[in-house]
């Protein structure tokens, strides 16, 4: 059920009030460095959450944990009411096996900062390969869907192009189409415009606005594009040193930040021309 008006940034009530993503006392350490420190937070179905904060504050790590690119050090992640970082065993839990993760992460898609298109495949193949091979979608159906998605991102004429023939902005829009082709319930956006030349940023953000308006995909978004964050998100989380320093509705967060950390961060972002 798509939200009728995206600029009405009320946090939607999840189905049956159930949270879709839950971080329960999650700790992530890389060696001696603690990136996430006993983090608790949850996301409702259909909710769009933007994570902001200085670099090294753990935002990207959260996305990578949800995408299973990293493993939690302590604590647990739940998705859809079922354990995700772990799997049930006996009366307790054990870290999730590769096959358990494979069965669970089908509903999650990710768009990367560096696009990560496959250079050995055409645009079409990049988009249809996973639906066909992983989901078992029939080829004609996957192709039709790919064409539809490329129209959505404004690249309908590039279906047989090769990734290297596209600009960064175009590559990123293909990457968005590729992620959507898996019909994800959750879409993770990891600084998707940071690697782009300034003039290409708007095109990519417009596509994402469109996706936000026309679908009810749950989104977790790490970005430095504050106006985009204000437009699409229901909630903004400010991270500092692996913890949530402040959270709130975008209007409140951007107009009236309460935490000094948030004030300082927003000031520095604005001064840098964003």
């Amino acid at each position: 059920m798509p939200p009728s008006d995206t600029h009405d940034n009320d946090r939607p009530q999840g189905v049956g009030g159930e949270d879709l993503i839950v971080f329960d006392q999650v700790v992530k350490r890389f060696g001696d460095l603690t990136v996430l420190d006993h983090l608790d937070f949850s996301v409702s179905p259909g909710e769009r959450v933007t994570l902001i904060g200085p670099s090294g504050s753990g935002k990207t790590t959260i996305l990578r944990l949800v995408m299973t690119l990293e493993k939690v050090t302590e604590g647990m992640i739940w998705i859809g009411g079922k354990p995700f970082s772990h799997m049930p065993r006996g009366s307790g839990f054990t870290p999730a096996s590769e096959s358990y993760l494979r069965s669970r992460r089908k509903s999650i898609g990710m768009v990367f900062q560096q696009f990560n298109l496959f250079p050995n495949m055409s645009v079409r193949k990049n988009i249809i390969e996973a639906p066909v091979n992983v989901l078992g979608t029939p080829k004609e159906e996957a192709n039709a869907h790919a064409e539809e998605l490329l129209d959505l991102v404004g690249l309908g004429d590039k279906i047989d192009a090769h990734p290297t023939q596209l600009s960064g902005g175009q590559q990123q829009r293909v990457a968005i189409a590729r992620a959507l082709a898996m019909r994800p319930e959750i879409l993770l956006l990891d600084e998707v415009t940071s690697a782009l030349d300034p003039e290409l940023v708007a095109g990519v953000l417009d596509v994402l606005r469109e996706v936000a308006e026309t679908t009810d995909i749950t989104m977790l978004c790490v970005t430095h594009e504050m106006s985009f964050a204000r437009d699409v998100s229901h909630r903004v989380l400010m991270f500092d040193k692996g913890r949530i320093a402040e959270e709130g509705h975008p209007d409140q967060m951007f107009n009236d930040p309460r935490h000094e950390r948030t004030q300082a961060f927003l000031k520095s972002v604005l001064e840098n021309g964003n």
């Binding site: 690119l69 496959f118 091979n133």
Partner: peptide, 25 residues
């Protein structure tokens, strides 16, 4: 590694990752 991460995000199995992405590259 970013190519491998993209295959994880698309939920490829190890065999699919090897056959479709890693070995061709």
């Amino acid at each position: 590694p970013s190519q491998v991460e993209a295959t994880v995000a698309l939920n490829y199995s190890w065999t699919q990752r090897m056959r479709l992405v890693v070995l061709p590259q």
